[in-house]
Design a protein around this nucleic acid. Structure first.
Lengths: 330, 330
DNA sequence: CTGTTAGCGCCTTCAG
DNA sequence: CTGAAGGCGCTAACAG
């Protein structure tokens, strides 16, 4: 009978003592690549379970240099989009015995850098989601640690993005098929890679004469509210918003002005948030979140193990037609 | 010139060598209560800054037993309510040099227990937010580690809750003042302490003859959608929903049925989520989230330092009147 | 006030 | 295949 009885408080020493073997044998038995006899491993595993052993991460980290944890940098956890990224990353990481430190930067590039500097010693690498900082500074702060970008490209670093151009194209085609010609886009902040990407794609898809460019806005919802009047004044009959929150802001103000959606204005969002979290049946371009987060975790872990080249993946986007778009009334 | 040049990679040894003092002196100089001469402390701090020193958490944890991190258990990060709790806890913790591990349990009591068992060795204590597990099991899994409950009471443990009874009372008074008599409540899951609390308060406030009790529902938004028809059939002219997401579900279905809100039905939510995240101007009872999270972090840290008795705090709730409630039409 | 000395729990050579 | 020994970076007695 060992002296330690509290749950999860036994060490390899307890196991070693219990079994009459050395601690290094226990350590090896518990290590994936460890070289021990099958019989010994079996006994160690049995004892570990019986004694409710759980490795002390701090000790392991100190000795291996690997922290078994990753830092996730997100602009704003309150945005359902990022909440889902966080959730996805967290679950995937846990399944491979890693934990995720989440840093919410309140949409401040400065805080992004600060968070990275702060956490760099405590994590094996970073997942940097849709950061606002500029390329140079970001690269500088990330120098020396592994990192995977999510929904942003940064030359030299692996990334998980989605096919925004295709998403915009799908949205434009959908609106054209409904008879709309004069189409507006409410652009997101210029500091956002995704916003620049969407705008560029929009400019490619919609010819000068038909194109109405609004924004850029800063705060999503309030920006949408604030842009609705300009949208009405522009003569556009349909709009593609930077994201769903912006679309929600637009819809809110449009309705307040007595303009029906979709009859008076077709609105396409971007992100494809859940109807449940939106409480509005918004036509929207779905952008993968949980899948992106999972892929990013995998890429990061692969990079840490130096397995293969630092690849980047581009996930597909898909238009979801719901109730905020309708044929043009003439 | 030291050999370590990479950012954040120097140790107290580097500082000690640089200054020609011992490592323990450096350690003491860097410890709040450390006993060193002001001059030495100054020099150490200068060198630490110059060498970009950052303490290795793993090493410190191993030696002190304190991990400088806390586990946060939340039912669902996608729910804006919990996302804000997470954000608040994270920011407060960071300000006192702690980090937060977030565990999302997908509204499963089983996963709550699992997460606690999983993380217990890696954190100093837990913040358990609105857990669904029953008292006994929860207490059992939490035995031996510090914990603060958020939005749930558990005898023997400190907690941060809000005055739900007052919130319900405020909502009922508001509706009565608008002329409503027959008032419904859509109750949340029985496994939720907050849901039971709200329902009990509602039963206290509204007399048998006027009272309509609906639910309990499981999934917030879908539950609201699914309950709207029963609500209409009940003859109630106003409803207090378990939370804002439920209210949103109700509103969605009511409108689909052609019932105007607030003219055909007054709807009061609960939580007081941002208009921006709701995109609906819902009258609602505001429940503190960030403040609650911050208080909880403070309580936990105090408990860990064994400063004072394990107190509990009850924060006020406040009705926010927006556009989903209106005078009864007769 | 400062230096010396032990570990914290684990992993990892190196012998055996 | 297994045991002994050293060290990861830091803190905490204990002397001086």
């Amino acid at each position: 009978m060992t002296s330690r009885t509290k749950a999860g408080r036994s060490t390899i020493h307890d196991i070693a003592a219990d079994l009459g073997v050395s601690v290094s044998t226990v350590s090896r038995a518990l290590t994936p690549g460890g070289t021990v006899s099958p019989e010994t491993r079996r006994r160690v595993e049995e004892a570990a379970g019986r004694l409710d052993y759980r490795a002390n991460r701090a000790a392991r980290s100190l000795s291996t240099g690997r922290m078994h944890s990753i830092g996730l940098i997100v602009p704003d956890l309150r945005d359902p989009f990022f909440a889902e990224v966080a959730k996805g990353a967290q679950m995937r990481a846990r399944s491979v015995d890693h934990t995720v430190y989440i840093a919410d930067t309140d949409r401040s590039a400065e805080l992004e850098f600060e968070a990275i500097d702060m956490m760099r010693r405590d994590v094996d690498g970073f997942l940097v989601c849709a950061p606002l900082g500029d390329d140079e500074a970001l690269r500088e702060h990330l120098r020396g640690t592994a990192a995977v970008m999510i929904h942003r490209e940064l030359a030299g670093l692996p990334s998980v993005t989605s096919d925004l151009a295709s998403g915009i194209a799908q949205a434009v085609q959908h609106l054209r098929a409904l008879g709309h010609h004069r189409i507006a886009h409410v652009a997101g902040p210029d500091s956002s890679w995704g916003a620049r990407r969407r705008r560029a794609a929009f400019e490619r898809e919609v010819a000068d004469g038909d194109r109405v460019l609004l924004g850029p806005i800063a705060d999503p919802f309030e920006g949408g509210v604030a842009t609705a009047d300009a949208l009405l004044a522009s003569g556009a009959t349909a709009v593609i918003a930077y994201n769903d929150l912006v679309a929600l802001g637009l819809v809110t103000r449009l309705r307040a002005r007595g303009v029906s959606v979709p009859d008076g204005m077709s609105v396409v969002g971007f992100d494809g948030l859940d109807v449940a979290t939106l409480a509005t049946s918004l036509t929207s371009v779905a952008v993968p979140r949980q899948v992106a987060a999972r892929s990013a975790v995998d890429l990061l872990l692969r990079a840490l193990d130096e397995v293969g080249e630092p690849a980047s993946v581009v996930l597909p986007t898909q238009l979801i037609v719901r109730d905020s778009t309708a044929p043009l009334r003439r």
